Simulated scan of single mutants.
Amino acid sequence: MANNYETLVLLSPELAAEDRTTILDTLTGIVDREGGKMVETDDWGMRQLAYPVQKQTRGYYVRLVYDAPGALVAELERNIRITDGIFKFMTVKLAA
């Protein structure tokens, strides 16, 4: 059974635009490969952080909304954890 999920990803401000695109293409590819469906990719751009995170005061925000089974979320988060350039993320299950 597929549920709606939202993952907010915080990318390093030092990444070039093509590196950000590569990371996001990889994440959306994982969703497609594991049987999910991307609903929306919302690019919030560079923003000031409320407090320093890993000595960074700015970050590039991207919000991913997708329909997926629960196992896909675990695989996506595993890949996010090992990807250089992503230093914070949060996944929430959206109300049906």
Rank of each mutant, 00 (worst) to 15 (best):
M1Y: 10
A2H: 07
E6L: 01
E6T: 03
T7D: 14
T7Q: 10
L8H: 02
L8K: 03
P13H: 01
P13A: 00
E14P: 00
A16H: 06
A16I: 06
E18N: 11
D19Y: 00
D19I: 03
T21H: 13
T22Y: 04
T22C: 05
I23Q: 08
I23H: 08
I23F: 07
D25K: 15
T26W: 06
T26M: 13
L27R: 14
T28N: 12
G29T: 11
G29M: 06
I30T: 13
I30K: 13
I30M: 12
V31R: 12
V31A: 10
V31F: 11
D32Q: 15
D32M: 14
R33F: 09
G35L: 13
G35P: 13
G36S: 14
K37G: 04
M38R: 12
E40R: 09
T41E: 08
D43P: 03
D43F: 02
G45Q: 02
Q48A: 00
L49Q: 02
A50K: 04
P52V: 03
Q54C: 05
G59W: 01
V62Y: 07
L64A: 09
V65T: 15
Y66H: 12
Y66R: 15
Y66E: 13
P69V: 14
P69D: 15
P69R: 09
A71C: 04
L72K: 08
V73M: 07
A74Y: 04
E75H: 03
E77V: 14
N79G: 04
R81Q: 13
I82R: 15
T83H: 11
I86S: 11
F87T: 04
F87I: 03
F87W: 05
K88D: 09
K88N: 09
F89Q: 10
T91V: 10
T91Y: 08
K93T: 14
K93I: 10
L94H: 01
L94T: 08
A95G: 05
A96M: 03
